[in-house]
């Protein structure tokens, strides 16, 4: 991998992380939240693959990336399931509706 591609990938990871964290801070919709979380996870997976590449163990990096994607899919599924319940019980997906526990 030439340095330019490396830099490009690094930029992609960083910007995905940035988008993810920013998204978590501003998103109001629960489904969007879960999607943003997935963006973050993809950033991490990309980062792992990149790390494998940089330490010349691309196969290790790729297997880590795939494992991460699988593991976090479960999290996404659980998150969606909870979102469905919220929609059923509260009739909304707005996270601001979920702020009864405070203080």
């Amino acid at each position: 991998m030439n340095p330019t591609t490396l830099k490009l990938c690094l930029m992609a990871v960083l910007s995905l992380v940035g988008i993810g964290l920013y998204g978590l801070m501003i998103c109001r919709n629960l489904i969007k939240m879960v999607i943003v979380l997935q963006i973050l996870v993809k950033a991490a997976a990309l980062g792992l693959i990149l790390a494998g590449q940089m330490s010349s163990q691309i196969n290790l990096g790729q297997s880590l990336g795939i494992t991460v994607i699988v593991a976090d899919t479960i999290v996404a599924v659980v998150g969606m399931a909870l979102a469905v319940q919220v929609q059923r019980r509260l009739g909304t997906l707005d996270v601001d509706a979920l702020s009864s526990l405070r203080g």
Partner: peptide, 17 residues
């Protein structure tokens, strides 16, 4: 201090970041 426990998810993430 208890006012900082807003109960709003977005603010909680701000705490982490």
């Amino acid at each position: 201090l208890r006012r900082t426990q807003t109960g709003q998810l977005n603010w909680n993430i701000v705490g982490i970041v």
